[in-house]
Design a protein around this nucleic acid. Sequence first.
RNA 1: AGCGGGGUGGGGUAGCUAGGUAAUCCCGGCGGGCUCAUAACCCGCAGAUCCGUGGUUCAAAUCCACGCCCCGCUACCA
Length: 688
Amino acid sequence: MKPMKLVTCGLPYANGKAHIGHLRTYIPADVYVRYLRMAGEDVIFICGSDSHGTPIVVNAEQQGLEPKQLVDIYHQHFQEVFKALDIEFDFYGRTDSDYHHTRTQEIVNRLIDRGYVYPKEIELAYCPRCERFLPDRYVEGICPYCGAVARGDECDQGCGRHLEPGEIKEPKCKICGSPAEFRKQKHYFFKLTGFKKFLEDYLASLRGTENALNYARQWVRSELKDWCITRNLEWGVKFPGEEELVVYVWVDAPIGYISFTERACERLSKDWKEIWLENKAEIVHFIGLDIVYHHCIFWPAMLKGADYTLPSAVVASGMVKVEGKTFSKSRGYVVWVEDDYLKAGFNTDYLRYYMVNYTSHQKDLNFSWEVFRDKVNNELIATLGNFLYRVMHFAWKNFGTVSMDVDDEVLDKIEETKEKILAALNSWEFKEASDAFMELATYGNVYFQSSKPWELIKSDRSEAEKAVASCLAIARALTIYAYPVLPRTMKKMAEFIGVDAEKARLDDALNVPEKIEVKKPEVPFERVDDDKIQEMEELMMDRIRKAEIKERGEIVEDKPRKGEVSNNTSKTGKDAKADETDYISIEEFQRLDIRVGKVVKAEKISGSKKLLRLEVDVGNEVRQVVAGIAEVYRPEEVEGKTVVILVNMKPAKLMGVESRGMILAADIDGKPILLTPEKGVEPGTKVR
RNA sequence: AGCGGGGUGGGGUAGCUAGGUAAUCCCGGCGGGCUCAUAACCCGCAGAUCCGUGGUUCAAAUCCACGCCCCGCUACCA
């Protein structure tokens, strides 16, 4: 009998809404669990909200809430989002629950009893006004080495040097802005240094994705430091014997994997001790790349110290980019799951497919609305959906019930697909798994196309039925194989041919019944139309623009500082270049004939995504100009607009259309924003 | 700065840990076929000096060195 499997996902921090970056971990994990179950494995799948830590306390305070109330909000939010996306945990807990506190204290006590914890006095930043000790990220001051504005622990914007506590000059509380001071405090440390040898051996045998393992191995090879595991906070798990201290969140958060397992096991009538104490299960952690060292270093050392079962695999997903840019909430490069995606009403299977199929689990995933549209329309619909529908529809219309005399070659192909999926899962390559069923769908389309049942039906009904039977067997296999990725749609499609996808096993794809009764099918997927995508892009552009404006305000303040430090940063290259800019004379500038123009007509250039053909009134004439603004502006938006145009631009032909002039625009990451005069100005007015 | 991961046709992506006929797949472009199917399906064509420079080898996208560029992480934010 195969060992039980426990699959966990990194706990979302209950301090903000779910975004697309979260899904990069949760969707593949859910897909993995669904596949395992279909392969006949016994799996427990758990997760929960990470409720503790300073940011939650601060954020709650700023909103006039108790920490628990804030956690309530996001705990609820995440559960709703997961439900909407068919991410189904056996148990979804929260770390501010009693049972979790109990388990955490039990483990911390074990570590203390075994001599892995010792007290030590350290200096910490304290804000007298907030009456709170400040984590380094909440301390701002001046770097003693280069004079740049720095964070408590690191000169993050200047020389990059690591700062020891107390080293920073003029420390200020980032929350209230008042001066901070340093105070001596007794804290407790975990003897991580004693686990170096253990970790080296452990990491040599730990399974998982290379991105995580390589990173962790490297980390252990370098010098390990003991780990401070207490904080001066009210909110959290009390440290045994110290009323003033709580356990550091990164100690208690992973213990959630244990405490949530306990609760899940209660529901499932299983024994959690078999998993966490008796080493009778495989433990697989799905995490984001940013928390590798917690899961591959601190966490195993703690488990080892407390004599709990060690994880057998750590699977780390790559980063998420948005429209090609680094994911950033503050800069607007973010897709919110609820406010953006769900609100727009897209089928949730589309996003599941995108998250799984875009690229290897370890690599960076770029989310772009255009790619989203293309993947849905050209892959899910054109290849998979179309095949399912054309086959079912044809079978229903012409036969109703089909005798399943299936081509052996087809059965082989179905078997082969299953093998590919299983192999892919084994190496955590979910794209490969989903590519495997997409390939089967293409194979089905080719089979249908080349056997021409629509012709055969007129001459040889039984031959036609054979062809349809083989295609139906493929369609049936597809509803099963694709179910973990596209549960909603595949469940629906499976019903038309009498399959219960939720209960099916992968092996069932080959157990073809003698007859299949086909019900009138519905179209599996709705197309994603361009207008909707444009709407989503505009929503994002708007957000990015607003973020830009906000950031610009900040940059202005930052300027003097940047000048000061530019000599000893690695970024000097760019700055130096800026200083050496070739100046142009006023005469040279005057050679530019820049005028205000009015767009009298605008239309798309067929075959081009970026270009619009404009007719612009520049005062003495109407010019034809081709502008690369179609990605951001629709023709009807541009018509009537007053713009700024370089009139004596050398004429050029773009996509075969002559352009006499250039419309000026601000450039935000390659997206143009048209310039327009601040007051009403007649076309032809010179710009100087 | 250190460490880790990358740089492959117009865009995206596979292969590179076990080096061997100049390379996968999806969009997009072009041409053809089909009409059962959601302008969906099928077939074919065009298009890559596989970041650069050296080196190892009979043979390198694939191994080694140096360089350039992008990204992530660096333990008291989670």
